[in-house]
Each structure stands twice: as C-alpha cells, then as structure tokens.
Write a protein that binds this DNA or RNA. Structure first.
Lengths: 117, 117
DNA sequence: ATCTCAGATCGACGTCTGTCGATATGATAC
DNA sequence: GTATCATATCGACAGACGTCGATCTGAGAT
C-alpha cells in the first residue's frame, strides 16, 4: 500500500492543540497517526527502555520484551517512521534514541487552552 | 467478547511516566489503551469540538463530522469507556463533557523525567 | 397506552494490525 | 572472495477496528 515509506526523519511536527476547537480533519489525521504509534504496549516499553538509559541497542529488545526479532524490528520501524525514535548504525548493531521534541509536540496537543491562571 | 462493559466511569487514572524506565508490562497495557482511544481522527475531532464549547450534544456530531449516527455513537462510547468523556442525559438528548483530569494523566506520562533544571 | 424521535446495539463487511517463521540485506571478520 | 551475525523484509495468519444499514431501547409528548 505505502509505496515509498520515509523510513527516517518525518520532519512534520504535527499536533495542533486538541482542545481549542481549531482541529481540522487533516490535522486530526496527523495527530491520530502519532497516537497510533504510541498505542501499543510493546512500543511504549521500547520508548521507556530507550529513554531510561538514553539509548538502546536493537539486539537487546527481543529478550527484554519477549517478542521475536522481526516483531521488534517492526515496532522500531513504526516508532522511527513516526519521528519518535532516531536510528544510528554502529558496526553491525542498530542503536536508537528518543526524539524528545516530537514527543513534546504530542504532549502539547493535549494541553488545555488555559494559558493564564 | 467483553461480557459487561463499564460504560461510565473508569476510575483508573492510568499512566505511569513513560520515559523513566519504570514502565511495567501491565502499566504499558493501560497506557496503550488510553493512546488507542486517542488514535482515531474522528475521536480527536469529537474531543476537540466538545472541549471547544465546554460540552456537546450527540445529535450534532453526525452532521458535523460526516459519519453515521451508529459510528458516532461507537466512537463516543470508546471515549467514555476510556474515561476521557462523561455522558449526561438531558431529556432525550445525550450531552458530553471532557474529563480533563484523565486527559492530563495521559499528558503526564509523556513528560520527560527532568524535574529540576 | 401509543406515537415520536435520539441514541444504543446488532450484524456484516473490508481493512488494518501484531505476530512469527523463513528469507533477504548489509556490515564486519577472516 | 566466503563466513558470520544483526537487522530488515516477506508472506501468512488470526484478531481487532472503522464503517454503515437495520433494529432495539428508552425518554418525552399526546
């Protein structure tokens, strides 16, 4: 279906504010795509484990999370495509780091529109 | 499948912090369930429209969002079950409000573990 | 009680998703 | 070059999901 997936960056910093009544159909699509990337327990645990130590090697995840190597690779791809992880090749190993700006962008969409208090 | 769905409250305020390396398998399930409820453009637009005016009548949503009445009812149910909306019956109409504490709980899970700066 | 109408539930459909075994790719070591 | 090993891709499968037409439920109104 997807003819040429951008497997790396996804420089779109989606995420219009969710609660202020300005969310258009297309923006909702983009935001929903971000949430979809977060809507799986294995992917959340990948983010969690990687963020905890700053970075993580793909080689450790199948044993740590109890999923096969293809399954882990599949989930890592989804997180990278969503812009939530960045991938770096070191020798024959693949290392991943969390892209916190993208995570913050998702968080901002949930923030209520009450700028003053 | 689900034999008796709690269609109202869901007092679980899920959402352990995502980035600090303490996410257990079961907590990841709960958090993923919250993100799953947010991972659909129609549901995001429902939240958006309802939050914008403080409340919203189910009767307006099919026309506003271009989906059938059963489909809207389906999505509203998912948001109520996730604890993100609360439902109130007024005469024959159903009105909905956003439960901001629950939304904030999801947001807190995304916050990076840097309490001091 | 009967009528009307808003909303929920049911049943079906096509599509998407998570999973894994098998295989391909690509990088290092020899 | 070949061998080895880490990761990606492929193919298949079962289950979940979004959608809608048809129907049921329940609250007013008469």
């Amino acid at each position: 279906m997807v003819e040429a997936i951008n497997h790396s960056t996804t420089e779109v910093v989606c995420c219009e504010p969710l609660l202020d009544g300005t969310l258009l159909a297309e923006e909702a699509e983009q935001l929903a795509a971000m949430f979809k990337a977060l809507a799986d327990p294995i992917r959340l645990r990948l983010l969690n484990v990687i963020a905890a130590s700053g970075e993580g090697c793909a080689c450790d995840f199948p044993a740590a999370l109890g999923r096969s190597q293809p399954t882990i690779s599949h989930h890592l791809r989804i997180l990278v495509d969503a812009g939530l992880l960045e991938r770096e090749q070191r020798g024959k190993w693949a290392w991943f780091r969390v892209r916190e700006p993208q995570l913050n962008a998702v968080m901002d969409a949930l923030r209520p529109p009450t700028p003053v208090r």
